[in-house]
Design a protein around this nucleic acid. Sequence first.
DNA 1: TTATTTTTATGCCTGCACAGATTGGTGTCA
DNA 2: TGACACCAATCTGTGCAGGCATAAAAATAA
Lengths: 244, 244
Amino acid sequence: MSTSLHAHVVEHLGSRIVGGQIPRGSILLAAELEEKLQVSRSVIREAIRVLAQSGLVTSTKRVGIRVLGAEFWNPYDSHVIRWRLASDQKGTQLRSLTELRISVEPMAAELAAEVAPEAMRKELMMVSAQMSHYGRQGDLHKFLELDIRFHSLVLAASGNEMFANLATPIGAILRGRTELGLMPERPHEEALLWHQSVSDAISNSDSASARKNMESIMRRTHNEICSLWEGQARIFVDPPKETR
Amino acid sequence: MSTSLHAHVVEHLGSRIVGGQIPRGSILLAAELEEKLQVSRSVIREAIRVLAQSGLVTSTKRVGIRVLGAEFWNPYDSHVIRWRLASDQKGTQLRSLTELRISVEPMAAELAAEVAPEAMRKELMMVSAQMSHYGRQGDLHKFLELDIRFHSLVLAASGNEMFANLATPIGAILRGRTELGLMPERPHEEALLWHQSVSDAISNSDSASARKNMESIMRRTHNEICSLWEGQARIFVDPPKETR
DNA sequence: TTATTTTTATGCCTGCACAGATTGGTGTCA
DNA sequence: TGACACCAATCTGTGCAGGCATAAAAATAA
């Protein structure tokens, strides 16, 4: 067993809950899980703790382990994001993430132009140059990896760790876009220029230009993939009633 | 003991790690923690699992429980956010959160104008009306609660669960702002009007106006509190090197 | 309705065996 | 002598089994 046992249990239960095989409101009993999954109590308990932190279950005395609905899931939890992307809620998850990145990346570019360390500005210039090169050659695979690197770099260079942390799921979006064949046969020339302009602007500390060009990229990106979630229902959580 | 034991251990260790009393690179041993905190192995182990998921520690065989640096912490974890706000990194955390909300709330307002359910539009109108009322009376306490409710509602009404999930930490920002005396003696008249305009626009499905007015609110908000993190160092995480 | 008892699943504790990573020693070869 | 590969000892988290305590739902009585 390469990875730890309780991680397997987390994976097993988590993917089933998010995937809908274990519906909301279900009551799991630790004793049953022990037997069904053939693991000991400590493993079950640690797994339940982890799932509880992700908002998938709550465990209360005398009743058992209650499976919660999607409105309680922690939408920033990396496990939850992965499970949702692998489920039939994929569209909803892609939409949420895309709306978030459209909001965040222009600001990230603006901040990067102000505060990015020199090394990151340099690498950004290299990456955007290579993007143009491989993009014009039509090497979509290489282009994808560079694209992911580019956006991850901008997010990191903003010096905002909450932005930087979005790099992984945003990478997943970009991968999904090409895997689903939503990329044009070769990247549009204007898209290449926008990327180039963003890194130029960041290198020159021109925050307004960095934001503007990133906004252009985001607009096009949105148009390319918003067909994926056409008609998907939205999740309305009621806002926290905190009297404090 | 009202709340569970392992939750106390999580609180104890988590707050100390984030607060810096337990420095990065420290090695904790489960056996020592058992004795020091006077709890059993199972409690320690479950707590460590939770802390590991928050990115505060990793536990490896033969070496122990290694305390990780801030660049590994999960910046969206509600515990982490709370602990950071209670530490001397408060400024950094407030900056990150504020930059995030400045990015997100205009988009949330725009989306809310398109998709908000009728009940939420109604409540938004009520809340903004009361905000004007209590704001003009100079009742800052009541105004604060309404303000939090207002922004939580807009985030929820966007139908994007990632946005909605930011309501709690954003509420913390707003509380912090008045507690630290960064609010004017009574809210500016234009701020009241902007809030009113946002809810009007959402009610009328005018997404452009909703965004524009929310942007105005964000601009002012930023000016009011950016003094809090003057000169605070930024955290640069290096972007994930995922070959996949 | 309200108070009390019973039921029952989780919370917590402990002893034991195992796995895997670090460390140090041993022996071989250059 | 010194570099390097290999092996054994050791340490610590991981997993297992079973026990008691406790809180909260459910059933019963007042």
